[in-house]
Structures are given as C-alpha cells and as structure tokens.
C-alpha cells in the first residue's frame, strides 16, 4: 500500500498536498484498495465554502458509498472534472490523476488532525493488526 512522503493524511484516509495557496485532496491508496472498483463520484461545486470535518463529496464503488471528509475549512477552487467519466482514475492513480479537489484554506493548516506519512503508515499497521485479530477470532 503506497504512502507518499510529501503528503499529509487523515484517519478517514484522505490525503492532502499543500501548495502555495491551495490544498489538493484525494483518497489514499489504502482507501481505493479497500473500496474496490470506483464507479461514481459526487464532488462539490467550485466556490463552495466547506468546514473542517464535514462531508464534501461521495465516492461510490460497486458495493459501497463513502463520504469524503475535509480536514480543512476553506473554499473549493477546483474539482477533478475527469472523474465524472473516468472514476477508475481513483483506483489507477489515487495520488495523481485520481485527485478529487483543490481547497483554498481559510487559515494556516490545522495540523492537529493531519498525520504525516510515518504516522499514517503506523495507523494503517494498527488497522491491519486489528483486522487480523478479528479474523483469528472468527477462526475455527
């Protein structure tokens, strides 16, 4: 499961890439792998004001519907229009062509809820341990 060094992450499996005046958001490799084939996205209109912690979009796979939660407050300044016709980009290139949207943050990034790559990797490892424990409990 790829975790890129220069990105920040949330425990809801959203990645954030900070650039000058914008933050680009997408879902992580772990998220796309867990969801399976993505077949539909619903993204907010450009210009929308969003508040930290709220659902700002939907990613649907064949079997599931997932909310995307923003870790930042700000204004949506761009969305990935290619996803409407090619939602599979999220599976194929979650950190690149599968990006979801750009937000212009209102304040300095609220780092309290963002993890760096090492912390996110640790978080993923924790999830895996929990899953293995559960599987062992279902064993014979």
């Amino acid at each position: 499961m790829a975790v890129l060094q220069d990105l920040k992450y949330t425990k809801e499996h959203v990645w954030v890439k900070f650039e000058a005046n914008r933050a680009r958001l997408g879902i992580t490799d772990y998220a796309q792998e867990t969801l399976g084939d993505v077949v539909f996205t619903e993204l907010p209109p450009v210009g929308k004001l969003v508040a930290k912690g709220e659902s700002i979009g939907i990613v649907e796979s064949v079997k599931s519907v997932s909310d995307i939660y923003t870790p930042l407050s700000g204004r949506v300044i761009d969305v990935n229009g290619q996803l409407a016709d090619s939602p599979e980009l999220i599976n194929q290139d979650p950190y690149g062509q599968g990006w979801l949207m750009d937000i212009e943050p209102f304040d300095a990034p609220q780092m309290d809820i963002l993890l760096d790559a090492a912390e996110y990797e640790k978080f993923l490892a924790q999830i895996q341990v929990e899953q293995e424990n559960q599987q062992n409990q279902t064993g014979p």
């Binding site: 399976g36 084939d37 077949v39 796979s61 064949v62 079997k63 279902t138």
Partner: peptide, 12 residues
C-alpha cells in the same frame, strides 16, 4: 457464511 466477495475486482 464466510464467503469471497471478490478476488481480482468486481468489474473484472
């Protein structure tokens, strides 16, 4: 029942 929901991917 513990059943396989997918192997390589539902679409494939």
């Amino acid at each position: 029942w513990e059943m396989p929901v997918q192997y390589s991917g539902i679409l494939e």
